[in-house]
Simulated scan of single mutants.
Amino acid sequence: MSYHLRKNSNSFLNLADDVITHILSKLPVESLQRFKIVCKRWCSTIKDPKFIKSQIDESSSNINHQKILLISSKIAPSPCLEYNMLAFNIGSTYASSLSINSQVVSLQPPSFFMSQDVSYPSVSSCNGLLCMVYSFKIFLWNPVIGKYKIVDKPDHYVLKRVNCYESALYGFAYDSVTDDYKIAATFVIKAKNSRYIVGIYSVNSESWKKIRTIPAGYRLFDQNPVSLDGTINMMATRNDGSAFDKFAIISLLVSDEKFVVTPVPLQYCGNHMKLSNFANHLYLSVFVEMDFLVCSLEKEGEWWTWTNVMKIPTLGSLIGIGNHNCYLDDIICLKENGNILWRKTDGGFLEYNVQNEEVTEFTLNQIPPTTDVSILFTESFASLKVPWD
């Protein structure tokens, strides 16, 4: 074979590899698991850190690839039989196609995920990794590869007075500047006076440190923080006198460890305000009187800007918002067809058809009605720079 033929042949093979890699990066993890056994080259490609990052970027921006994690509690006897323990069932299914016929895949958390504690776990998701805080334990877990990492609780000497607080909020985000995963713990020392202590944990250094606290005069919502694009975002109210009557999004930029405040425009302020992350976008959902708004935000530099608002006048009356029949818990996502999906307080689900202005309620027979937590996450092969436990 001549030099030119060999050169053209090699170029074709390289092009084919690039095309195959591009196609693979757009597939969900279930498909990639199967394709790893096709050939050594494909297996090597799928395990490559650059490919894993590309696959995370593709899946995170595609609502069809995002799954909903469903956590429900159960009572289990303790090994010594002296008292009962609280354990959890964890299942997952695709969020965008969630319906009464959805198949729920059971996940097996680390065996220590049970306790006498009767509270429910705090769960955050980033790049396919789950940060779970429960019963004085913090651990990172990738359900796809079945590995976890136990994180030390904040040291009292690092975060003084951390042993005396009313509650705590935990956020989890990826710092692309240092290629590090970070956990932010916000301890509510006194909610009434807006007093907080904030610590941040670096997975790479496996250590906590105290950072600047929440801007003065703001009171945080008791909601799980939402991670996106290197930020950990929390809803808050501003105290301008006798009442908390102004709202804002407080964002922690994990790379430089500083807080940025984005005010919520007055026309978007109302009841049942909730921050969520659907398909790699930050959304605020809110009821303003009987109208339901979904506001999309985009990050410009350090601040979020308001880019799109969906207004649905009929939704409030259809589902009973504004009276004693209000039974919504968390908005889960905007589905690809534009419909809105909620979780109900009784463990069921509700889907609003925007085009037909109809509401459908359903339950999943494969999960108990006592679903305590639901959170969106994207499956991936993401790992840590430090050893797993």
Rank of each mutant, 00 (worst) to 15 (best):
Y201G: 06
L159H: 02
F88E: 04
V177P: 03
D152M: 11
S202Y: 10
V177K: 09
S115A: 14
N142K: 06
Y120Q: 04
E82M: 12
I100C: 09
I75C: 05
I145V: 15
C164T: 12
S106L: 04
S194H: 07
S72C: 05
K192N: 09
D152I: 14
Q108G: 03
Y120W: 10
K160E: 15
S115G: 08
N89Y: 15
L107M: 15
V123Y: 03
Q108F: 08
V118K: 07
L129Y: 04
Y174T: 02
V177F: 13
S78C: 04
S125F: 08
F139C: 02
C131R: 00
S125V: 07
L140I: 04
K182D: 00
E166M: 10
I183H: 00
L169M: 13
K137T: 03
F139L: 04
W208V: 07
I75T: 15
L70I: 14
T213H: 11
L81Q: 06
E166C: 07
H156S: 11
I183P: 00
V188S: 05
S125N: 08
N163M: 04
S205A: 13
E166Y: 11
S119T: 14
L140D: 00
S194I: 04
S106C: 03
F88S: 01
V118F: 12
F112E: 11
D117A: 08
N101P: 05
N163W: 05
L169D: 07
K137I: 04
F172H: 00
N127K: 05
M85G: 06
Y148W: 15
E166H: 08
A76S: 07
I183S: 00
S124N: 12
V151S: 01
D179W: 10
S119L: 10
Y181F: 15
V177D: 07
T178S: 13
T178I: 13
K147S: 03
H156D: 13
N163A: 03
S106F: 07
I200V: 14
N84W: 10
F139G: 00
H156Q: 12
Y134T: 01
Y134D: 01
A184Q: 03
K182W: 09
K160V: 12
F112N: 10
I90H: 02
P109F: 15
H156P: 02
M132G: 01
P110Q: 12
S194K: 11
V104I: 14
A87M: 01
P79E: 06
E82V: 14
I211T: 04
C131K: 01
L159K: 02
V105A: 08
A168D: 05
C80A: 11
S102L: 10
N127L: 02
S122L: 13
S122V: 09
S72Q: 05
